[in-house]
Structure formats: C-alpha cells, structure tokens
Design a protein around this nucleic acid. Sequence first.
DNA 1: TGTCGCATTATGTCGGAGTAATAAGGAGTA
DNA 2: TACTCCTTATTACTCCGACATAATGCGACA
Lengths: 253, 253
Amino acid sequence: MTNAKAIEVKTDGEAKAKSAPRGPGRRLHGSLVHKLGLAILSGQYAPGDILSGEVAFAEELEVSRSAYREAVQVLTAKGLVESRPKAGTRILPRNRWNLLDPDVLAWAFAGEPDIEFVRSLFELRAIVEPAAARLAAERRDRNDLKIMKDALAAMRRHTLATEAGRAADRDFHNAILQATRNEALLVLNASIGAAVNWTTQFKQRSRALPRNPIPDHVRVYDAIAASDGAAASEAMSELVHLALEDTRSAMKG
Amino acid sequence: MTNAKAIEVKTDGEAKAKSAPRGPGRRLHGSLVHKLGLAILSGQYAPGDILSGEVAFAEELEVSRSAYREAVQVLTAKGLVESRPKAGTRILPRNRWNLLDPDVLAWAFAGEPDIEFVRSLFELRAIVEPAAARLAAERRDRNDLKIMKDALAAMRRHTLATEAGRAADRDFHNAILQATRNEALLVLNASIGAAVNWTTQFKQRSRALPRNPIPDHVRVYDAIAASDGAAASEAMSELVHLALEDTRSAMKG
DNA sequence: TGTCGCATTATGTCGGAGTAATAAGGAGTA
DNA sequence: TACTCCTTATTACTCCGACATAATGCGACA
C-alpha cells in the first residue's frame, strides 16, 4: 500500500508541459504518464501494489481525474497496470510489462537500470544483431551504405562523449536493421538502441574508456559493403561481445 | 481524408461490452480501441489519414467524447496515431507502430495479415528461437522440462485442429523462452506466439496438413532435456524452417 | 506580393453526477 | 464452529457541459 508518497507532480507554476520533453505525450497529462511510468519502473511501486483510489490519487497529484484516467489508460496499454472496479489500479507483475515499448525502455534506463535486465538486453543484441548484419550484407543497397557511412563519419567527428556521437552510433545500428528489409526486426531498434546508448554513456561516466569502438564498427561496415554475410555476422558478433566486456569491466571498476 | 466511412461501432442495443472479448480493455470504451485498432491495422486508414474532428468523430461513433479520447490515448501509446491541437488525429507511418505490442499483433492477425509482415516474423523466429533453445538447454531446470512435457502431451491429446492444441503449442514455445531466464527474450513470446498460431491455423484452413509437427517438437525437447545446446539450436532451426516451408506451400495451394 | 495579426477551430483540461460492478462484511444455516 | 448466501458500500466506469489553450488559415495592411 505504498501509495502516493512523494510523487511530486507539483509542476510548479505554469511550466507544466516542460517536464516531459518527449514520450507518449508532450501534452500536459503526458507528464503524468512519465512520472508514473518512471515511478513504476524504478521500483517505487512493486507489482501488486495499489494506487489508492482514483479520486484520492488525482487529488494528491493535483490534477483532474480526466488527466489521471487518461494516464492510467496509457499505462494499461503498455501492460504496466490494470484497474478493476472495486480493487483500484494495481501494478501488474513484470512479465506482463511491455518491456520493448520505447517509452517503457526509456523509463527503465532513466534511473539506475536493473543489471539483470541490461544483461538480458545484451544477450538479445548478441543474438539479433549478428543475424541482422548478415541479412543487411545480403540485401543492402547503395543508400543504406551511404547512411551507415555518414553515421560512422559523425561518430568519428563527435566522439562518443557527446550526445551527437551517441546518436550517430544508434543511427549506425539502426541503418543495419533498416537494410534487413525486415519490419519485425526493425521494431527492435528501440531496445537495441537503448542498450547501445547506455553502454557508451556508462563507459563515459566511469572514465574507463578502454578501447576505441570505431574500428569494430568499420569492420562491420566493410563486410556489409562487400556483401559478405558471414564476415558481417562475425564482425558484429565481436563488436557486441567487446561492448559487453567493456561494460562488465566498467561496472566492476 | 477518408474519415469515418463505415466504421459502424453501433453496438446494437445493450450488448456493448461483448464486442471486445480480450485486449486492452474489456470495458466499454475498450471496444472502441479494438475497433479503431482493427480498422488501422487492416488498412482501412492509411498512414497520414486524419480521423476528422474529435467531436464530429465521437458523434458518428455514438460515444461520448471522453470514451473516444481515452481510446485515442491508448492508440497513441501504441504508436499508431498522433493527435495535435489543430490538425486532428493522424495515422502515423508504419515504422512508428509498435508491432510487437500484443494487441497490435492481434489486430494485425485478425484480418488477412500482410504476407510480407508474416515473412518478417518468421525470419525473426528463425533468428531468435534457435538461440533461445540453446540457452534453454543450458539453463533449464526440472520445472521447465515438466512444463514443456505437459505442453507436448496436450498437443498430442488435442491435436492442432483445436484451439486447446494451438494453445499448447504456444505454451511449449513460451516455456522455452521462460527457460532462457532472459526477460528481454521473454517479451518476444507474443510475437512468436502469433506467428506460431497463425501457421497452424492457416495450415488447418487450407487442409494441406502436410506433416505431423509433433516429432519436430519432441526432438527439440529431447535436446533441451539432455542439456545439449547445439542440438537444441539445430532442432529448433529445423522446426522453424519446416514450419515456414509448410506455410509457403499452403499459401500457394 | 509578402508579412503580420486576428479569428476560427479543434484539442486539452476540468469538476460533477449517475450507473454498474465488485469485494467485503454480515446474516443465516448446517 | 464453519460455510454459504446475500446485502451493502466503496470504487471505477461512463457521460456531460464548460472553459482554457494552441495552432492553423484567412484577411488586412504595408
């Protein structure tokens, strides 16, 4: 019954909409979704907990019931909560959560993400990305290669210390997924991007910065450009494993 | 501007809530989400189309504006639409859709799913499931094996012609994902389950029924039970490819 | 013809009232 | 004493009408 303790959606004054820069809604009530989603993903609410009454809760948050209800609808759509007539709105168990939803991922990585979850994401990367690189090598066209090349150039120019550099990193991996011509794979870009981003950011923070990741990316690019599926798969596999290793050692230190 | 032509949410009489058996909300407005989601996924609305005005649209559907708004919120959360102050609610391009969302998948497979999309799902299966089987072989415990064994027994008992048999099929594949101890992989159970389900259902419909899939599943199970990762991976790979082949020939016939 | 400002319009937000459904507690019985 | 059924009260769901806000499109003016 850890209800509305210290959620603080005060939104002091008139600057209400600024708290949620992007996400499901840049609207006013969208910030509520952001707050609640963050609170749930960060573990402030455990599965099974109940969000007290609708009216009481909306009161504490100082928002109208409409805004609260629409926020709950969004969270319900993402599988985070479930609300029933008498029992109130209760947090669902983790396995019901839509962990691949971009917003949910963003919330999970906003605070200190669960190490176990990060590990599972890397395992997913290690499975999907080499296969994606192989397909990309077989199906890419000239335009795909140009996008990858530009991303690589941007990575070199900005370095991974800047947000622009990390965005270029994500663009590179995303371009590979695009080149697979596979819609289902493409949906994974959000989860893979989150893992990629967190890696570089984490390494940056721990100032270990053990190795330059650019050459690894170049090897992948060269194999894809040469339409060599096997080499692309292997190069990408190596890239992911090295990234995982770096992250591991950075976490220890 | 192909707006509210022939959506027909009439919900004749008092039997309103029954139209949405499961999904995001079995509530009254949940049926709206179902209808709209179905309409979008089936292509009745093309990306870029606008859902006329909020008030006008809610009027045509004979529901209150609140219900309509909450439905739109859910669709927004799934990345299907986006609504802006003046321009109305517009269908987003496909690449913004959250295709791995269980509800979206259900809508996609409710009508005649896009062949290209089914192909991409099978490609995803062919990538993920063998790897998952390998991990499952390394990490499964006794309980996992029991669940798989029960699912196999249920498949034999009910056959794939019945819904119970197809559910057992999904359970088997789901149990493998469970045994990987990987949260990120586990989220893919919905998409894989949809592909699995559609395969069997489709083959059933086309009365081709070319081969008994049980032995393939048993081979996978045996390898996992023997903790033989390589064999499990290979058996699962074969299973997926055979399923794909069967589906292909069934589609032609 | 180009730009600025205003009015229109649709969305966002709000509080309230009525309805339906569930869960809990009490009454009755075995 | 334990179990079943029913009553009751709490709560979410639905709908309503109004105001606030923001963006677009049009018209006026330079």
